[in-house]
Amino acid sequence: MTHIPSLTLSNGTSIPQLGFGVFQIPPDDTRQAVLTALESGYRHIDTAEMYGNEKEVGTAVRESGLARGDVFVTSKLNNGYHAHDAALTAFARSLDDLGFSYLDLFLIHWPLPGIGDFTETWHALEEIYASGRAKAIGVSNFNPHHLERLAQTSSTVPAVNQIEIHPYLTQDDVRAYDTAHGIATEAWSPIAQGKVLADPVITSIGERLGRTPAQVTLRWHIQRGDIVFPKSVTPARVAENFRIFDFDLTPDDMAAITALDRGERTGPDPDTFNWVPDD
């Protein structure tokens, strides 16, 4: 079994640097996809209430035969529940849907700048953390000015900031802020929903190393220090994405991939995104 490197979060919690994401995986496909990932060696699953597949993630973890403590599971607060009491209720619902007594990591999914004040939401997460029902708490899609706002109202620094990162959106400014403040950076959409896989810089590196473009891109994330969780429902692709620890990119490779940055998002801009689900 390949050893997955782990990073230590600011509160001492250990998190596997490679995980498996279930964003956009339909509930009917999620159980088998997660089982396949766990059988392939993944020990970190990233879900969210917004994805609609927490129940299936929990079922797969239980059916895997692995001890609960051997699988790091993250979920996120849905956008309609930022009020303090609503956040507590939503967290309890996520635990119930997953069938767990605790989460390893719980995140505010989006800052929603035009809807309420996320600092109230953060205080609810602090209470959840103090209760022991989440081993660590953090945020997702927060820019430095959002994080500064939290710092003004709370002494609890997010353990993690999960943001969109890929070679076309390197997010060096956000990553630098996170590093300076002891916040681990997680990368969602790590291959830009496949857009980077035909890039000649990445394909040429892959050809030289005998690796796929996806493996090259994921290795770039790992060597940068990002926590990354690709997703796929294809077993061969799930296994392929796991095989990124037996080769290295050179400093020139790393620089060439980083130089592809063009500020191109595949998802919403956190400074303008204010969507909430219909109840």
Rank of each mutant, 00 (worst) to 15 (best):
residue 188 W to L: 07
residue 191 I to Q: 05
residue 171 Q to T: 05
residue 168 Y to F: 15
residue 199 D to C: 01
residue 182 G to E: 07
residue 172 D to Y: 05
residue 181 H to P: 00
residue 188 W to E: 09
residue 196 V to G: 11
residue 185 T to K: 11
residue 171 Q to C: 04
residue 158 P to Q: 02
residue 183 I to N: 06
residue 168 Y to G: 10
residue 196 V to R: 12
residue 194 G to F: 12
residue 170 T to Y: 09
residue 157 V to A: 01
residue 187 A to R: 06
residue 178 D to E: 02
residue 171 Q to V: 05
residue 188 W to F: 15
residue 179 T to L: 14
residue 163 I to T: 09
residue 161 N to G: 03
residue 180 A to D: 14
residue 194 G to I: 12
residue 184 A to P: 03
residue 193 Q to A: 14
residue 163 I to H: 01
residue 179 T to F: 11
residue 193 Q to H: 14
residue 157 V to N: 01
residue 170 T to K: 10
residue 179 T to E: 15
residue 178 D to V: 04
residue 182 G to H: 06
residue 197 L to T: 12
residue 170 T to P: 09
residue 155 S to P: 04
residue 196 V to Y: 13
residue 178 D to P: 04
residue 168 Y to M: 13
residue 191 I to A: 09
residue 188 W to P: 09
residue 174 V to A: 00
residue 199 D to A: 03
residue 192 A to M: 12
residue 186 E to G: 00
residue 172 D to W: 04
residue 182 G to V: 12
residue 196 V to I: 14
residue 194 G to N: 12
residue 199 D to I: 00
residue 168 Y to K: 11
residue 182 G to Q: 10
residue 180 A to H: 05
residue 164 E to K: 02
residue 177 Y to F: 15
residue 185 T to Q: 05
residue 166 H to G: 06
residue 169 L to D: 00
residue 195 K to H: 13
residue 161 N to Y: 06
residue 169 L to C: 10
residue 198 A to G: 12
residue 159 A to P: 03
residue 182 G to W: 07
residue 182 G to L: 09
residue 188 W to Y: 15
residue 183 I to H: 01
residue 172 D to K: 13
residue 187 A to S: 13
residue 183 I to T: 00
residue 185 T to G: 11
residue 181 H to S: 03
residue 176 A to G: 02
residue 191 I to F: 12
residue 181 H to W: 07
residue 157 V to I: 15
residue 175 R to V: 15
residue 197 L to D: 04
residue 160 V to W: 12
residue 185 T to F: 07
residue 178 D to N: 14
residue 174 V to K: 01
residue 181 H to M: 02
residue 171 Q to P: 02
residue 180 A to E: 13
residue 180 A to P: 07
residue 177 Y to D: 02
residue 196 V to Q: 11
residue 190 P to I: 01
residue 179 T to P: 05
residue 190 P to L: 10
residue 167 P to L: 04
residue 166 H to R: 06
residue 198 A to L: 07
residue 168 Y to V: 09
residue 173 D to Q: 14
residue 190 P to E: 14
residue 169 L to R: 10
residue 168 Y to R: 11
residue 176 A to D: 03
residue 199 D to E: 10
residue 177 Y to S: 00
residue 175 R to M: 07
residue 172 D to G: 07
residue 160 V to C: 11
residue 176 A to E: 01
residue 192 A to H: 11
residue 161 N to H: 12
residue 181 H to Y: 08
residue 162 Q to C: 08
residue 190 P to T: 03
residue 158 P to M: 00
residue 165 I to N: 14
residue 197 L to M: 11
residue 179 T to N: 14
